[in-house]
Design a protein around this nucleic acid. Structure first.
Lengths: 189, 189
DNA sequence: CTAGTTTGCCTAAAGGTGTTAGGCAACTGC
DNA sequence: GCAGTTGCCTAACACCTTTAGGCAAACTAG
C-alpha cells in the first residue's frame, strides 16, 4: 500500500474526531487504522500504544480548551469573565463531547504538570482577581469553580437534568449568578 | 466442573468489588469468570452481556449510595443535612471508587427512571426544605448541589487537586460553608 | 422410585482489539 | 548509484466477547 502520510499529530487529530463521533472510550486503534485505510500495525510506528494515543488526544483537548478560554477571558473581568470561562467549558463539551471526555483522562503527574492543565488553573485563578479573595480562600474558590463547571457540564451531558422541567439554559445562567454572588460575598471562616 | 452457585446478584456484587479493585472500565466478564473459577460462557446464562453486567453494577451502586444518603439525612436539616449528604458522596467515592464510577454510567431513560437516581434527586431536594427557596429556584439549587458534589468528588479522585497546597479536606469544608451561605442568601433574579 | 424436564456449567468456535517482530520497497543523502 | 532510513506490510499471539450446542446433576410428577 502507498504512503498514507501518517504521523502522530494526524493520528491524534483523527482520534479526536473519532472520539467526538463515537465517544472517547470507543476510540480504538483498529478503527483509526480503518479510517486511514492502513493496517493496524502501521500505527504503532507513530504512537506507542492505545494508551499513548488516548493521552495525546487528552493533551490536544486540554490545549484547545485552554486556547478558547484564553481568548474568551481577554478583556473581561469579574462576572463577565466568570461567565465567559464557564461557557467555554460548556460549549466545548457540547461541540466536542469526545474531546471533553478525553480532557478528563487521568494523567500521570509529570504529564499533567507539562499539560495545558496548569493554564486552566491559572486562568480560573485570574478570574478571582475581580473579586476580593486572598489565600487560602482563593484556592478554595478555584476548586469550587472547577467543581461546578466540570460537575454541571458532565451531568448535563450525561442527561442527568434532561427529565426535569426548567430549562437547563435557565439553570446555567442562574448558577452563574449564584456563583458571582457567592464570590462577592465569600463567607469568612 | 461442579456447581458454582452463580446468579445475577452474586455476579453483580463480585463485579462491584472488581470495579473497586481495578477500576470500573477494567471490569471484564473474563476476569469475573476467573474469580468464580468458572468458564466465561457460563456467565452468559445469568447476565445478558458485558453491558448488562455494567448496568447492574451501576444500579447497585446507585442503591447503596441512596441507602447511605437516606440514613445520613435522617434527623438532620439545613446545613447539617447538606454536609451529611455531601460527605456520603465523597466518602462513598473514596471507599468504593469503582462503584462510584459505575454510578456515573449513562443509563437509558427507562432504566434511569426506575433506578435509585430518583431517590437521589428527591433527597437533594429535601435538603432545600431547610432553606427558603421556591420553584424554580429550588430546581436550580438542586442542580447546583449535584454539580458541586459530583464535580468536586470526581476532580479530587482524579487527582486534580493533588499538586496544590491547601488541604483538600479544608477546601471541602469551606465549600460546604460557602454553599450553605449561598442557599441562605440565594440571589433573586 | 423412576422418567422427563429443567438447570447449570461445559466445550467449541468465530470475530474483534492490542501488541510485537520482522520484511520489503520507496525515499534520502552523499 | 549505493547505504541507510522511513513507512507500511504480513504474520502471529494473547485476550475479551458472544453464540451454539452438549452433558450431567437436580428437580418434579406420576
Amino acid at each position: 500500500m502507498a504512503y498514507a502520510g501518517l504521523n502522530a499529530e494526524r493520528l491524534t487529530r483523527a482520534g479526536a474526531e473519532l472520539a467526538d463521533e463515537v465517544g472517547f472510550d470507543q476510540v480504538t486503534v483498529s478503527e483509526l487504522a480503518r479510517r486511514f485505510d492502513v493496517k493496524v500495525a502501521s500505527l504503532y510506528s507513530h504512537v506507542k500504544n492505545s494508551q499513548d494515543l488516548r493521552t495525546r488526544i487528552a493533551l490536544l483537548a486540554l490545549e484547545e480548551l485552554a486556547d478558547r478560554a484564553a481568548e474568551a477571558l481577554a478583556g473581561r473581568s469579574a462576572k463577565d469573565a466568570l461567565a465567559a470561562l464557564a461557557n467555554v467549558y460548556r460549549d466545548y463539551a457540547r461541540e466536542h463531547p469526545g474531546r471533553y471526555a478525553a480532557a478528563q483522562l487521568r494523567l500521570d503527574p509529570e504529564a499533567a504538570a507539562a499539560s495545558a492543565g496548569v493554564r486552566h488553573a491559572r486562568m480560573t485563578r485570574a478570574i478571582l482577581r475581580g473579586y476580593d479573595l486572598t489565600e487560602p480562600d482563593q484556592t478554595h474558590a478555584v476548586r469550587l469553580l472547577g467543581s461546578v463547571f466540570h460537575g454541571y457540564v458532565s451531568l448535563e451531558m450525561g442527561g442527568g437534568f434532561s427529565h426535569s422541567a426548567p430549562d437547563t439554559q435557565e439553570t446555567w445562567s442562574r448558577i452563574l449568578d449564584a456563583l458571582d454572588a457567592l464570590l462577592r460575598n465569600w463567607p469568612e471562616r
